[in-house]
């Protein structure tokens, strides 16, 4: 394990964005806008053990985090690097042939709990983990971060029913609600609204927050950890957040920034 540095959640988010941009540029990888969308959520969780209690991936009492939207994994890889779980050099093998840092979340990376990539998988797995923890009175909490478009997968709704039935109060679902999916907006595809009411009717304690406001995120996460019910934090986000030409632009679900585009993006981040 490498030594970690203590960063404020704001600085942590900034590093996630900066390094994610560099990594996808180097690897010519997709999904940078998805990674930027969740940077603040991950930074809030990973920058302080108060929110995600994670000192070591081997600690049986660590809080668990599953990234259901595995395509945004570059942001998670950076967060785990910032936690000190592996070196900068290792991180920058991302996207290289045979690197464990593949372009969807991989459990071969230290600190990644489970491989994801196909959507609609992580929530049932999180339910299984939460059920075990609850029955064995384990002290840890489990977070699972889903995209909004991913909620069109029926398996998630099977799992919502399950979480309610088994009173999984140790489970928090985070929804990256940026309203952009693969081809167009979520609203124009298969709308989710009103998501909070849907989830409340499934027995969840639902919070709606600005997914880029760390204060709101922190408050909701602590409330969710103390909830008597399974919780859902609907994070209103902007896809591509932090890089003006990427924000709300479907193109950046796919495109990798060129060297020139990277320079513009990094310069913008430096000014923030």
């Amino acid at each position: 394990m490498n030594s970690s540095v203590t960063l404020s959640s704001k600085a942590f988010a900034s590093r996630i964005r900066y390094l994610s941009l560099m990594l996808v540029n180097k690897a010519k990888a997709s999904h940078i806008a998805s990674a930027l969308s969740i940077a603040d959520i991950l930074a809030t969780l990973y920058s302080d053990n108060k929110y995600l209690n994670l000192v070591s991936p081997e600690d049986p009492n660590r809080d668990r985090f599953l990234l259901s939207k595995g395509h945004a994994c570059v942001a998670l890889y950076v967060a785990l690097h910032l936690k000190g779980f592996y070196s900068y050099q290792d991180l920058f093998t991302y996207g290289s042939d045979f690197s464990v840092f593949m372009n969807h979340a991989s459990h071969f990376v230290d600190g990644v709990e489970f491989s994801t990539g196909a959507l609609g998988h992580a929530l049932p797995i999180a339910c299984g983990k939460a059920l075990k923890a609850k029955q064995h009175r384990d002290p840890w909490h489990i977070f699972v971060l889903l995209s909004d478009g991913e909620l069109q997968e029926g398996s998630n709704w099977e799992a919502f029913l399950f979480a309610n039935q088994f009173c999984l109060s140790n489970l928090t679902v985070l929804v990256d609600y940026n309203n952009l999916q693969s081809l167009t907006t979520v609203d124009e595809t298969i709308a989710l609204s009103p998501l909070n009411k849907k989830l409340e009717s499934f027995g969840f304690k639902a919070f709606i927050v600005d997914g880029h406001d760390h204060k709101e995120l922190k408050k909701a996460i602590l409330n969710a950890k103390n909830s008597l019910y399974p919780s859902a934090i609907i994070c209103k986000t902007v896809k591509g957040k932090g890089v003006s030409y990427m924000e709300n632009n479907i193109k950046w679900h796919y495109k990798s920034p060129s060297d020139d585009e990277l320079s513009i993006a990094l310069a913008e981040l430096a000014e923030q």
Binding site: P124, G128, L131, K132, A133, E158, L161, F162, F166
Partner: peptide
């Protein structure tokens, strides 16, 4: 009774839950 779970008519969830339980050391 505490180790018997009727997941309901939801096979995808059953397999996901089983994976979660197994990843935490149980034998589903």
């Amino acid at each position: 009774p505490n180790r018997f779970f009727n997941i309901g008519v939801a096979e995808q969830n059953m397999v996901g839950v089983a994976a979660g339980l197994a990843s935490e050391g149980l034998r589903p």
